[in-house]
Design a protein around this nucleic acid. Structure first.
Lengths: 313, 313
DNA sequence: ACTGGTATCGATACCGTTACCGATACCAGT
DNA sequence: ACTGGTATCGGTAACGGTATCGATACCAGT
């Protein structure tokens, strides 16, 4: 017991014994067994990270931020991919919870009823990242996608754009993209405008789809002066389509994406985009769980809205 | 004990008791405690995944493949990021090993001596992914970067290119990029050629750096007819630089990248690239550990070379 | 000398599961 | 009836820590 206390830095151990134990541990190459500790405490230093996809640089950056946020804390991240499937998400969270993790990082606020019940029973700190439109289970760290869509539309209208198209790509259950579109449309509506054309492709390959659909929508509606895309990957396809066809992007036709991928700043033409704080979101989520582990009070239903930045040509 | 055996599908349980136990488990909502199991067995169903970076879509895709490969097996991946730092890698692997994982997936074959010692002591299945140039600790699944560089150079020479430049970007300890360059140079050498110009930038932001350095190298060496890049991200910067300056890519100047990112196929100009089987590598690594868990024999020092595909304009 | 308080220490039990091994039941063969 | 084999079952200990709590030592105050 004295050794256990000494190595953990627990109180009630004399200076002398702390030194003795540390020396002995060093000499024998002793390393603790986190499995035994976790088993004994019914509480592990694992955290669960649940993302919908890893085919997109966005969630990789978030995970990179998480890794940074928990660095040095002793927490170890486990991850799982849901493919935007609520049932998979439920199963995944259930299996992560069985490890008695020190916390969970989930994507979005749209977990199923079943999942919410599961989480409310388990006394585990939960962070929901990327989104703040809705009711949070635990802490929510992200931004409003509705607002992001709205602000983009307002800025584009302020730049004199009037004939808007929308090009989406990806699974229909990417609810956050849906909310951006809703926000976008609400701002158009407020200005007495409406989408002139809208295309959606469930295809996975987003840049390729963006290129193809952009060509289609412009063929059908050559008078569009702005296209809003579900994200930058799709928008890049739009840029390439225009470049290939010799359409002057940014002038007659303005393209707007979402995420603020580095590449949008390096293109030979400028596009509009919303720069999202992905790494910071991951970092903050990681920090939150570190603090929770160290006994910081939970913040159920507390939303941390990180700023997004509009980048306009 | 009978219940434990029944739930695990172990032998020596009567049909009748299996049914009884399963019914009781369902009725009481019993779920096993993986921590206790792992503790009791000194063997967890966790696997460790160690990647150098998550700022690049490449490793995200690998992790996506891993997640797919282990799906349904009960294995759960833990991940860590080394930032290309061998010391961090050592510490990370040490801490992952303390969880008695069912396996480890490491990136590359260039672990430090200390790390190799650590792994040879631990009786844990190891898969080293992405690279097959060197000595494998366990199973190696990937391809030869040297060979990839060489094949690209040979193909470019066959297309009549003669005045080659190289533009690299990223940390100096990205050894795989270094080996591609070595392979590239060896093929040039074999053809009696040599690099006319070579630039390297340790900067992180690869597309932006690619754009800048391409402009520089072309300013200094306007007579280059081909530029080889450390990867597609950098090459895309090169494409954007040329597009911005009105240089005809693919004609007077051929650009060659590496990885075969989807975007290289969607650009308004074609570039050369080596399509790498990233997802398959992750998938195969995951499968290997699943099979190891199920008792398949280890394949120490066994290399699985997956094919890369040259994509040329 | 006695009391009460504080600092430190360590024996014991327990966390939930599984390895191990002995017990039991039943059957076929003699 | 007895033996040996097979199928099944469950008691016990063990995995490596930590919570708990009683024991001990020492000191100050009376």
């Amino acid at each position: 017991m004295t050794a256990s206390r000494a190595l953990r830095g627990a109180p009630d151990v004399s200076r002398e014994n702390i030194d003795k134990v540390e020396r002995a541990a060093r000499e024998t190459g002793y390393v603790g067994n986190p499995l035994a500790t976790a088993f004994s405490n019914s509480k592990s230093n694992l955290i669960g990270v649940v993302v919908p996809s890893l085919n997109n640089i966005v969630f990789a950056e978030v995970m990179s931020g998480i890794a940074q946020g928990i660095d040095g804390s002793g927490l170890k991240p486990m991850f799982g991919v849901t493919d935007y499937d609520p049932v998979k998400e439920f199963e995944l969270i259930k299996s992560l919870l069985s490890w008695n993790p020190a916390g969970l990082i989930l994507t979005g606020l749209d977990q199923s009823e079943e999942t919410r019940d599961l989480l409310s029973v388990a006394a585990v700190p939960v962070v929901q990242i990327m989104d703040t439109d809705g009711d949070a289970l635990g802490a929510a760290i992200g931004f409003s996608h509705f607002q992001a869509g709205r602000e983009m539309a307002q800025a584009l209208i302020a730049r004199g754009r009037r004939r808007f198209g929308y090009v989406g790509c990806g699974l229909a259950n990417d609810l956050r993209a849906g909310r951006r579109l809703e926000g976008f449309k609400s701002a158009l509506d407020a200005a007495g405008l409406a989408l002139v054309a809208m295309r959606h492709d469930p295809e996975h390959s987003s840049t390729e789809a963006g290129r193809r659909i952009t060509a289609e929508i412009l063929h059908a509606h050559p008078d569009l002066d702005c296209i809003y895309y579900s994200n930058d990957d799709v928008a890049l396809g739009g840029v390439f389509s225009c470049l290939a066809q010799g359409i002057a992007v940014g002038d007659a036709l303005l393209l707007a994406g979402f995420n603020g991928l580095e590449m949008t700043r390096t293109l030979p033409v400028r596009i509009a985009t919303t720069i999202t704080p992905r790494r910071q979101i991951g970092f903050a989520a990681g920090r939150y769980l570190v603090e929770a582990k160290q006994g910081a009070p939970m913040r159920p239903n507390h939303k941390t809205v990180l700023p997004t930045v509009l980048s306009l040509p």
